[in-house]
Every structure is written in C-alpha cells, then in structure tokens.
C-alpha cells in the first residue's frame, strides 16, 4: 500500500467516522457518583453507556429519560442526568432558590438519581433543550451490567403538575 493511498483512505475515512459518531451515537464512560444507583453503583468499576444522538435529533425527550448534556456552568464538560420535568410542568425543588418552579418554554429540569451528591437543576435551574447532547440508551460495559436504561422516576420526584 503506497503512502498516497493510505493518506487517501484517512482523508475519506475520518469524516465518515465522525459523521457516524455525530448522527448515530457513541460509547462514553460515566464518571462520578451522581447517578447512583442506576449508573456506577460500585465505587471501583466505571460503567460505559451507549449515548444515542439519533434519539435526540429533534429534541424529543420524555420524563425519566437519562440524557447527557453540556453543563451550563462549563461548556467543555458533559454531564449525565435524568429528566424530571419538561416545559410547562411544575416541580418541587430541593434546595433551589424557589420552592416551586414552573419550567419555561424550551427548557427541562434534570436531576441526578443520587440526591444530595449531584450538581443538577437544583443548583443551576432549568436547562435549555439546546444543551442536550444525547440520550443514554443502555449500559454496554462491563458485561455483567449489560442492561437497557429504563425511563423511570421515583414517585417522590414526579412533577407536581404535568403540562398537557
């Protein structure tokens, strides 16, 4: 294989790979304890999740979905949280400046499962849907933890009122 054909396949291969990662999805490692017990239940081994970009292509998310989004505080950082409420819902907050918050248009309320050990909407308020990066579909590694991530919300964290 000549140098020319190698550089040619790189030139065409890299964009195809990037486009695939951008539109279909990719696998990422979960850091931190904010989503315990759903993700990273033990402290030693880290879970790898498949993040589907395709699932959020037109910002269709449901309450209870696990999503990854760019942190509003630091655009370089990606955080993984659970959607608690969508636009128009009223949530009862934990330690936010207002006890009850009505989610404004085009925003959602995200929280980590590990209440008290997570930096989420209770700190920075409702987040704009435009910050959503991908939806976590399943845990792919380690093999013993292989499972789909279900959309579920504990009864105590359901929004107080749900917009139609």
């Amino acid at each position: 294989m000549s140098l020319r054909s190698i550089s040619r396949s790189i030139l065409f291969g890299v964009p195809i790979g990037l486009t695939f990662l951008d539109t279909v999805g990719y696998v990422a490692r979960v850091e931190g304890i904010s989503m315990q017990p759903a993700l990273n239940p033990g402290s030693t081994n880290k879970d790898y999740v498949f993040l589907s970009r395709w699932a959020v292509r037109d910002y269709n998310i449901k309450r209870g979905d696990v999503i990854s989004l760019s942190s509003p505080k630091d655009p370089n950082q990606k955080i993984i949280k659970r959607v608690v409420a969508l636009q128009g819902d009223v949530v009862s907050t934990i330690g936010y400046k207002n006890q009850y918050v009505k989610i404004p248009e085009g925003h959602c309320w995200v929280e980590g499962d590990h209440t008290g050990h997570t930096l989420d909407s209770n700190t920075f308020g409702p987040v704009s849907l435009g910050l959503i990066n991908a939806k976590a579909v399943s845990i792919v590694w380690p093999p013993a933890r292989w499972q789909k991530l279900e959309a579920k919300l504990p009864e105590s964290r359901k929004p107080l009122s749900i917009a139609m």
Binding site: F12, V14, P15, I16, L18, T19, T23
Partner: peptide, 14 residues
C-alpha cells in the same frame, strides 16, 4: 455519495 455527504457534514459541523 455517502463519502461526500460525510465530508460535507464534517465541514459544516466543525
């Protein structure tokens, strides 16, 4: 077609 679509996507995206 797929190759050039991908190159276009990357140019516009990055």
């Amino acid at each position: 077609v797929i190759q050039y679509a991908c190159i276009t996507h990357c140019t516009f995206e990055y």
